[in-house]
C-alpha cells in the first residue's frame, strides 16, 4: 500500500512526463507548419501554389537592390546562400533594411522564381554592441557579415 503523498507524487510526475513527451512529438511532427517562414531553397524544392500567402526569409543579396523610378517600388533578391528568389515590394522599407541584412517578406509567389511582397520585416540578430566596437571589429577583420 502506497502512502497517498507518494501516490500523488508519482501521478504528477508521470503525468508531466507523458505530457512533455506528447508535446515534444507534436512539435516535431508539426515543425514544418510552425516555422515562421520558408527559405528560398525550400521553395525551389517544393513550389507552393500562387494563391497561398506565405513568408520567405533570408539575406538580402549583395548588389541586388534596385529602386524603381516611382520612388516606392524596390526590387531585390533574397538568398540563403544556395538558392535565391527575386522580390518586388512597393512601400516603405524598415530602417534596418539593406544588402546583407536578414529579412522576412510576406506575400505571394508570382512564378516559381519571383515573389511579390506586401510586407517586409527586418530580422535583428542577437548581437548587441556599441558602434565603436562594431567599427573596431570591422577594421580588425573579425566581423562576420553572415546573419540569419
Amino acid at each position: 500500500m502506497m502512502a497517498p503523498k507518494r501516490r500523488r507524487l508519482y501521478l504528477v510526475g508521470g503525468g508531466m512526463t507523458s505530457l512533455g513527451l506528447a508535446v515534444c512529438l507534436v512539435i516535431f511532427a508539426f515543425q514544418d507548419n510552425l516555422v515562421f517562414f520558408y527559405s528560398p531553397s525550400e521553395l525551389a524544392k517544393q513550389p507552393l501554389a500562387a494563391e497561398q500567402r506565405i513568408r520567405v526569409g533570408g539575406l538580402v543579396q549583395e548588389g541586388s537592390v534596385v529602386s524603381e523610378g516611382d520612388g516606392l517600388t524596390t526590387r531585390f533578391r533574397i538568398t540563403d546562400l544556395s538558392e535565391s528568389i527575386a522580390v518586388t515590394y512597393t512601400g516603405i522599407l524598415p530602417s534596418l533594411f539593406r544588402e546583407g541584412q536578414g529579412v522576412i517578406v510576406q506575400g505571394y509567389l508570382q512564378s516559381p522564381e519571383s515573389f511579390v511582397a506586401d510586407e517586409v520585416l527586418a530580422k535583428h540578430d542577437e548581437n548587441y554592441m556599441p558602434p565603436e566596437v562594431a567599427e573596431a571589429l570591422k577594421q580588425s577583420g573579425q566581423w562576420k557579415e553572415s546573419r540569419d
Binding site: I104, K123, E126
Partner: peptide
C-alpha cells in the same frame, strides 16, 4: 534549440 525560425532573435 527548436528550429522554428522565428522573427525573434536568439538568446544573447
Amino acid at each position: 534549440l527548436l528550429d522554428l525560425r522565428t522573427l525573434h532573435q536568439g538568446a544573447s
